[in-house]
């Protein structure tokens, strides 16, 4: 490549490059530095060494807000990612069948993803209201106990109060959040449908010749062939669920209510940084979160060779 072409190339990507350096790289480096400082946005950062990380360890040991936020985030991420994968594959497999009105049903399943997050959060707040909500009303009609959803701390504490309280409530605040996250499963559905259409028909024909029924074909052909996409969705879903903020902020009164049962790490980080103006501590928290997500992602990559069919 000629030097002039290189220059043109660099010039063409320079808007992105400048944006990346100023809006991503600099904050990334700055937050690492601030995590070793006491910093309140208004005065100069003061170097405090590992104090912020010691404070995090202390909170973790005594079960403080950070420990609760970590447990809540783990619960939410695990439940949300697992259920969205299961639901996504189930829906995609059902909608892959050549039935009348297939396009309509596919559109119907995708439609919720175009609803803005804020509108969806408010909608779910109403649907899952413990006393007046449609879902609890439906459960009660079936003679099942009303659940706590966003409003109850049952099954939302650490350790969880499973199998429920005296009123038969099994599901609590975080379960409401998980249910709400499944609202956006339409995005995964599109990816799974594309992956399903990529599976060679010859594999199904061979399985059929070997006497495999539909169930066996699903377990021994469809699922293994979907594992690369499942892997992708698990990694992306994990990152997204750790970053989830808007809907949690809205349904928890911006505080992780009730009793901290919806206080996730992203919310805790926001409150620490911008409400308590404890930017150094929040930066340390962000770095711990980053390292944790990296470790879990690395573990997923490491184990993927055993379960991802390439």
């Amino acid at each position: 490549m000629h030097r002039s072409e290189s220059r043109i190339g660099v010039a063409m990507i320079s808007p992105w490059l400048v944006g990346f350096c100023v809006l991503t790289l600099f904050p990334f480096g700055a937050s690492l530095y601030w995590s070793f400082c006491r910093y309140d946005l208004l005065s100069e950062p003061a170097w405090v060494g590992l104090d912020n990380y010691r404070r995090l360890a202390g909170e973790l040991a005594e079960g403080g807000s950070f420990a609760r936020a970590l447990a809540n985030t783990a619960y939410y991420a695990l439940a949300s990612v697992t259920l969205s994968v299961v639901l996504g594959i189930t829906l995609a497999s059902s909608l892959a069948w050549k039935v009348r009105g297939r396009a309509f049903y596919r559109t119907l399943c995708f439609l919720p993803t175009v609803v803005p997050t804020v509108a969806a959060a408010v909608l779910w707040l109403w649907l899952l209201d413990p006393q007046l909500g449609l879902i609890n009303g439906f459960l009660q009609k079936l003679n099942l106990p009303a659940q706590g959803w966003f409003q109850s701390t049952s099954a939302a504490g650490w350790p969880p109060a499973w199998p429920g309280d005296h009123a038969g409530r099994v599901f609590g605040s975080k379960d409401g959040l998980v249910l709400m996250s499944l609202w956006g499963v339409g995005n995964l559905l599109v990816i799974y449908l594309a992956a399903l259409s990529d599976i060679p028909k010859t594999l199904y024909e061979a399985a059929e010749l070997d006497g495999a029924g539909r169930t066996r074909q699903f377990w021994h052909v469809t699922l293994p062939m979907l594992t690369p996409v499942v892997f992708f969705n698990v990694v992306m879903g994990l990152i997204q669920s750790v970053q989830a903020f808007t809907q949690i902020y809205l349904v928890s009164d911006g505080q992780g209510d009730p009793a901290g049962s919806t206080l996730t790490l992203s919310l805790h980080l926001f409150l620490t940084a911008f409400k308590d103006l404890d930017m150094g501590y929040a930066s340390a928290m962000a770095w711990v979160l980053f390292v944790l997500v990296t470790l879990v992602t690395a573990w997923l990559f490491r184990t993927s060779r055993h379960w991802v069919h390439v």
């Binding site: 707040l125 413990p130 109850s152 009123a167 409530r169 209510d257 009730p258």
Partner: peptide, 15 residues
């Protein structure tokens, strides 16, 4: 009244 009942009743005001 039971802690969960109290939480549910109180928070139900959001709706």
């Amino acid at each position: 009244y039971g802690p969960s009942e109290v939480a549910a009743f109180r928070s139900g005001e959001q709706a």
